[in-house]
């Protein structure tokens, strides 16, 4: 559906050049929900904007549905854009048009037959559950409702692709959940390929099939969503997806022994491993915190434990644990003093 081939985007300023996207190649399959995560200024928005020609790459190919859109003239690009919907963090609705007229504008742009527009507007509003808001102005809607209008507008042209730039970042947790559900639904029912930028890890875990991690203009890691969270390879990814379990500082101070954070694939139970370690190495493992998360319906477990015992026993126990969990992180003494 979407293939990027060595895409570069460089912004030229008077005195300097800024490479916002560096040599990005990737493939997004039809019907996939593809996530892009990364720090601020990593080049996520710039990359996504190359997909509908809002940003022309300095070099490289952007192939949408078999066609390299970087070679197209502006009229050709406009045709491509009609097949790609886009939603935004700040919704970007026309404030002086009613909800219905906002959607009608999208239909007008693609020369949808005049006499059928009204019917289509109603159908689109029904799709996002806003049948009764056709004649109100965006200002009187909540953020979540505005984004629903944004989605309805983006779907007006029956697009094959939906681009979402931080589409839930301005919404509260509950509303974010609603929008995520709508997008999942659209993806499932209509088979629309979704490209979604976010810095909300909850959204990433819930929604993405595949994830690309961007840093400083480059894609540093790209994998199935579960693998990105369960098995992050790059240091940047690790840092980004690190499950931020916070243990109250008083407890950390009062705890004897090392504090370990164990990450394990949740299908296997961790209890036998803990029990065996306690017995075999004659150490005491104390559970401080534990949780299991589901990513694409597959579980990832996180367990924070303290370990007490002689130095030798502890280091042997650590070796055993290392072999039996995905990842083990030891809270260093100086970090402990810092809390």
């Amino acid at each position: 559906m979407i293939t990027l081939q060595n895409v570069n985007v460089t912004f030229k300023h008077k005195t300097s050049e800024l490479a916002a996207v560096k040599d990005v190649s990737l493939h997004i399959a039809k019907g996939e929900i593809f996530g892009i995560v990364g720090g601020s200024g990593a080049g996520k928005s710039t990359l996504v904007r190359t997909l509908n020609g809002l940003q022309k790459p300095t070099s490289g190919e952007v192939i949408i549905d078999g066609e390299d859109i970087t070679k197209l003239k502006s009229s050709g690009i406009r045709e491509v854009r009609k097949k790609i919907g886009m939603i935004f963090q700040h919704f970007n609705l026309i404030s002086r048009k009613t909800v219905g007229k906002n959607i009608e504008f999208a239909l007008k742009v693609q020369n949808y037959p005049k006499d059928k527009r009204d019917e289509r507007v109603k159908a689109l509003l029904a799709l996002v559950g806003l049948e009764d808001k056709k004649d109100v102005y965006p200002a009187s809607l909540s953020g979540g409702q505005k984004q629903r209008v944004g989605i309805a507008r983006a779907l007006a042209a029956n697009p094959k692709i939906l681009l979402c730039d931080e589409a839930t970042s301005a919404l509260d947790v509950h509303t974010t959940e609603e929008i995520v559900d709508i997008l999942k639904d659209i993806n499932r029912k209509l088979g629309i390929t979704i490209v979604f930028i976010t810095h909300q890890l909850e959204v990433a875990k819930e929604l993405f099939h595949k994830v690309a991690v961007m840093s400083d203009g480059k894609i540093i890691e790209i994998n199935e969503a579960y693998e990105i969270f369960a098995n992050p390879k790059d240091a940047v990814t690790k840092n980004l997806v690190k499950s931020n379990v916070t243990i109250p500082s008083q407890i950390i101070k009062d705890t004897k022994g090392k504090i370990l954070t164990l990450t394990y694939k949740g299908e296997k139970s961790i209890e036998p491993v803990i029990a065996y370690t306690n017995k075999k190495y004659n150490v005491v493992l104390n559970i401080l915190h534990g949780k299991i998360e589901y990513i694409q319906y597959k579980p990832i477990g996180t367990l924070v434990v303290s370990i007490e015992g002689s130095e030798e026993q502890v280091s042997e126990a650590l070796l055993y644990l290392k072999a039996n969990v995905e990842e083990i992180e030891v809270l260093e003494d100086k970090e402990r003093e810092a809390v």
Partner: peptide
């Protein structure tokens, strides 16, 4: 942002002048 959203829909300059 509204102009950009319109461009993303495939609107031309004329559409943007009249409707945005």
């Amino acid at each position: 942002g509204v102009i950009e959203a319109s461009l993303a829909m495939g609107a031309g300059v004329k559409d943007i002048i009249c409707d945005v």
